[in-house]
Design a protein around this nucleic acid. Structure first.
Lengths: 169, 169
DNA sequence: ACACGGCTGGGCAACTTGCGCAGATCTTCC
DNA sequence: GGAAGATCTGCGCAAGTTGCCCAGCCGTGT
């Protein structure tokens, strides 16, 4: 009991129901301000402000940046490319190379027979080939396997996770 | 108005340099308002307002929702799971099942020997197994291949793409 | 020459933010 | 039992911002 409390105090992790409701509200209507939030949630303004500060301090909420839709920018093709690297080439080095290609939106090192998995977008299937060629042009890529996303069945989301995390405490 | 004008009005695509600078600025400091943007960009307030409205109308910027960091919520394990489905099961149906699992953050239908690719998070590797079991419990999954993300070499980003899109016009 | 769309710069009322502060709970600790 | 500490509430105030309107300027295309 005491140890548990100590843990909670030193490294408070997780969120409560109010945090979750706040995140949900902001997710639904991002443009509303702190005051409006407090009204909708039925708590004082200062409380909302404090919760928001803590959530961002603890990096649960990274930021409120604009979410850009690549498709609307003219890049409707999404593909996931698995890269197998030559042993000699470090992952960091490869990541730096990939970072120079704007169409590479994301890259992870992964377990399995592949070494890296990246998300790539392109304007057309033909241009996708071009982008992949640019990736392959990087020294150190031994093999690349590409799967094209045909439909986005579940768009990226975190709300269900947030709610679950709130329930768990 | 001619056909050309009409096309421009109905389906204006692409962005210009000012749009890109605006997105970049908001990406860097999301909390600043329209007025502050106009000062930093050296344009009139109304211009910023108009640009922002158009960008959101055209869905280039979907919203300004809070970006939740699963790791900070207690879910530091990320995995990509490829699902092979039995023919009889529709993708839509499978997506609905997956949508009920909070740890499934994203799902796409894809080309290749797999049928669906999803992004899954978990609190530990052990729990990841549990989540995957829940996925497999869904009727219709014939086989699942999992790769675990060891490191996020390039975190999800769109800025380079935005800049490229602006240069292209 | 003219209409049109986009940008500017100004003004105004209404609202929101950031901040501080006192009081009310509630939990934890001694 | 009671004190310390954290959290939430409700209030007020000055300063800043928003939403909205308008008149004028300028380049493009008709």
């Amino acid at each position: 009991m005491t140890a548990h409390t100590l843990v909670n105090m030193t490294k408070e992790v997780g969120i409560d129901a109010l945090d979750a409701r706040l995140i949900e509200l902001l997710e639904a209507e991002p443009r509303i301000g702190v005051l409006e939030c407090s009204r909708r949630l039925g708590v004082a303004r200062g409380t909302v402000q404090a919760r928001l500060d803590k959530l961002t301090e603890r990096a649960v909420v990274r930021d409120f940046g604009p979410r850009v839709e690549p498709a609307a920018l003219g890049y409707p093709v999404t593909a996931f490319v698995t890269l197998e690297l030559r042993q000699a080439v470090g992952h960091e080095h490869m990541a730096q190379r990939l970072a120079r290609i704007p169409e590479v939106l994301e890259a992870h090192t992964v377990t399995g027979q592949g070494d890296m998995l990246c998300r790539i977008v392109a304007r057309t299937n033909a241009e996708l080939q071009g982008v992949i060629d640019r990736v392959l042009a990087s020294e150190g890529v031994q093999r690349a396997t590409t799967v094209i996303a045909l439909a986005e069945q579940i768009p990226y989301r975190t709300l269900p996770l947030v709610k679950q995390a709130a329930d768990l405490r």
